[in-house]
């Protein structure tokens, strides 16, 4: 799955999690200040990502995640590791 496709799926999960339409999700957007996600939203999103992609994301891996692009980086690395 390429980066663009990953971003599309992430946007869908984001919409399911928050119940809000997200037509424009940019990689530079901050999860909290840009997208308005609170701790409950972020937790729910991570759970959905883990269920959808069958990967495990540890809390330590989220420490440096601030933007959509950061989250995609983590997810892409996880998928690459599980494929390899």
């Amino acid at each position: 799955m390429d980066r663009q496709e990953l971003r599309r799926v992430l946007t869908e999960l984001l919409e399911e999690t928050t119940g809000e339409s997200r037509p424009e999700v940019d990689e530079g957007m901050d999860l909290q200040e840009g997208l308005g996600l609170d701790s409950v939203d972020i937790f729910s999103l991570i759970v959905e990502i883990q269920n959808k992609f069958r990967v495990k994301i540890a809390s330590e891996e989220l420490v440096s995640v601030a933007t959509v692009g950061d989250l995609l980086d983590v997810l892409q690395a996880k998928l690459a590791a599980s494929a390899g």
Binding site: L37, S39, V40, I42, F43, I46, I57, A58, S59, V63
Partner: peptide
Amino acid sequence: TTRGGGEALVELW
């Protein structure tokens, strides 16, 4: 709630 709450919930989960 304001800092690191999402990560903390993931760890507790």
